[in-house]
Write a protein that binds this DNA or RNA. Structure first.
Lengths: 203, 203
DNA sequence: GTCTATACAATGATAGAC
DNA sequence: GTCTATCATTGTATAGAC
């Protein structure tokens, strides 16, 4: 029977305590600015617990990123299976990705640091496969909308990249934030700018 | 007559040497991962030079950001004064911003770390004024295109934000980079997706 | 304005008991 | 698996000579 020392109600293991604390701190301060001591204090454990479970600071970071990537990719699978018109599914796909990023904001920021931060700021983890997979999936939906005649002929790659750019902009929480604006509304508006311009008008 | 010790051809002062070295390192590794020792070694000066000119590490960072912001905003002023149709000027404005970011990639990454990086990764410097100014300028061009009848009526804010999102995506050097793709071409393509959809068609 | 030399706190990590 | 205690290294920053 495990000891119960710091948290009377739920006695989760040190491993999980560390992961939970680390994602918050790495998400708020980035890899380099987050110290092992910070994490230990926030998790309420001592140093050997971290080094026993993860080997070192980088091991904890790596475990965290893997966990985050798998969580965020779940939203993709669900959104792909949705019903509705192709354009509706494009919107739903982006919306789902946006909501997932909001819900797991810390995980998203950790991944975002790898993707968009300085090249050598954090341990290098190759996430290009995940990024490419996201693009491919969204592009398939765009292609579907063109094939079905919902959208007019266009460069599907550029449409996909533009949609992704808008999604990333809405997901990034502080860039260009204007007073009294809601990122969710902005995402809807930006998607409309792109998609409405491609809808085949009534003759 | 100043001493000439490390650099036979151009004997610039320690202050400039530090700024040049720091922008490279901060751009490559971010604020926290870049150590004062790194900078000193790269600049070929000793510690007191840094602390004499900038007070501390954060002072050097701050000076660097201010320098970068003013450099990057020059491109805006020039692009605003350009001739051509409103749509051409929108494209030119984004193109100029993109080129400026490429040319001063390190400065851009330093600023980008503040705008899109983890909230507490680097010393907080309020750049919201610069961001808002950029949005306002681009939006004025979009509004002009609508007023002149080049573009159909639309939500100018959302169009502006979408354009900015595409610009930022193309400027971010590693996010979703696909094999054999050129960010400059992608920017052109994404701008076309947005603007061509808004062009008023011939009846 | 720049150097040599150094102070001193914070960092990531480990040994060994339990 | 987790604790106490500690280490070696690296971090930012300064004193004082020139």
């Amino acid at each position: 029977m495990p000891r119960r020392k710091r948290d009377p109600e739920s006695d989760i293991g040190g491993r999980e305590r560390l992961l939970a604390a680390a994602v918050r701190l790495f998400g708020a301060k980035g890899y380099a600015a987050t110290t092992v001591r910070d994490i230990l204090r926030a998790a309420g454990v001592t140093a050997p617990v971290l080094y026993y479970h993860f080997g070192n600071k980088e091991g904890l970071w790596t475990a965290l990123v893997r966990e985050g990537v798998s969580k965020l990719s779940v939203a993709q699978d669900e959104a792909m299976a949705a019903a509705g018109s192709a354009v509706d599914r494009i919107r739903g796909f982006c919306r789902a990705a946006y909501e997932m990023r909001r819900q797991h904001a810390d995980s998203h920021r950790v991944i975002w640091e790898i993707l968009s931060g300085p090249p050598a700021a954090a341990p290098r983890l190759d996430l290009s496969g995940e990024g490419a997979r996201f693009i491919e999936r969204l592009r398939a939906l765009v292609q579907e909308a063109v094939s079905s005649g919902e959208l007019r002929a266009c460069n599907t790659l550029h449409v996909t990249l533009a949609l992704t750019a808008c999604l990333d902009a809405a997901s990034g929480l502080r860039v260009y934030d204007l007073p009294g604006s809601d990122p969710g509304d902005e995402l809807e508006g930006m998607m409309s700018v792109i998609l409405d311009g491609l809808v085949i008008p009534f003759e």
